[in-house]
Design a protein around this nucleic acid. Sequence first.
RNA 1: GCCGACAUAGCUUAGUUGGUGGAGCGGUGGACUGUUAAUCCACAGGUCGCAGGUUCGAGUCCUGCUGUCGGCGCCA
Length: 442
Amino acid sequence: MAKDTWIGDIRAGQHDGAEVELKGWVHRSRGSNKIRFVVLRDSTGTLQCVVKRDAVGDEQFEAMKEALIESSVIVHGTVQATDREHGHEVQVSSLTIVGPVNPDRPFPITESAMEQADGGETEFLLDNRHLYLRTGRMTTMLKIRSTVFGAIHSYFRDLDFTEYQAPNFVAGAVEGGSTLFEVPYFGRKAYLTQSWQLYAEAAMPALERLYTIAPSFRAEKSRTRRHLTEFWHAEMEMAWSSNDDIMGHGEGVVRHIARSLLDENEAELSSIGRDLDLVANYADNPYPRMRYDEAVETLQGMGVEIEWGQDLDYSKEKVLTADFDVPHFLTHYPRVAKPFYHRPDPDDPKYVLCHDLLAPEGYGEIIGGGERTWSESEILERIDEEGNDREAYEFYVDIRRYGGVPHGGFGMGIDRVCTWLTGSDHIREVIPFPRDSRRVTP
RNA sequence: GCCGACAUAGCUUAGUUGGUGGAGCGGUGGACUGUUAAUCCACAGGUCGCAGGUUCGAGUCCUGCUGUCGGCGCCA
């Protein structure tokens, strides 16, 4: 039963002249009542199969004629190298329709629907997501996405980081003010996690260097092309490290992702129209670091209305990054603009030792991180300062009572990185079943 | 939470100052032995999102509702 012949291999010339058994789905079918050209699709590509009535007999020929788009079929035939469009085709000797498609409900996704969506993902394509995944564009995105996940794992594992899992049911918030998804929990309230960070800090004295790839949940009613309510979060935490050390790894992992895409998915990137030189730029060049104050001065110099102490919102990030040709780090935000766990700068406690990584081309923030407040007295002071409940963070504070050390980490929005590196118009383009404030189905 | 758009066949859409809703794709039937979004002929397919209102007459104008999309804020 197992499949052993793949369209990608045939197109690479590995089966020229050979008899093959090919399993796949009908992508297109056309022809006359004596000869049909069936473009077959599998996970590795498409290939034209030539079905002649004389070769397969009336019964199989009629069956093929009736097989609609996305019918699953097994064909036997001979691989032939040709000068025609696909380079290779299969001369079919026999075929079986495995799973037919009902003509009352034909495959509903048309070229015009996809062109019109232009990556914008119409309601129809979102409703029929299980079928949209089969289209070339979505299949390509899923392959690129897989490379990105693999690259994150290989970056951290090659540097002896340990992969570590935090709970997804939690009792309290990480981000001050962010909205949590509340779930019933045996008569109590629990929440879906927004970040593994607090639990990562708990394991930091044990593992010293740790990372995770996990979903995070935020109940924000955001209506933008860069937000999901469930997104994939790559996070790392490291003992004995400074803000600069952490940024080094943020830059390292992003450049490694860009390099991996060039090494493994050049054809896929080209097929969705991505400029490879841009991606190479992101892989090969260092990412500059700029202090918050500098950014504010730059913006003020450009005539943007901004006061010191304000967080930089997306519209300001966009103005700031307009001329950037690689991602830039923004560091040393005002203490008042950031949550309690950021460590105040010992040289000037008006600031915290933190960083955001801003992607170019207007894609916005892809990483947020920095040093953590690590002494008991300082963390209590910061919790009180923000009016948080000490009790809710008891275990978090307790970590610091047993050999606290300087440490830090970051969180990276993997879906945002995928959106940016593929040059996509919308974060929904790079995840199979996107979740936002208005959609949990299919 | 705030602001702004949109809703016509399975899909993508046209529809002029209000006057009998068209097309392409897809489907069905037929023709065709080398097609590349194949081509050609024919047929089927519509509560114009829902509910009211104005009018002799509403897909078109007005009100409300629902849904969807985009932007802001917040963030990754």
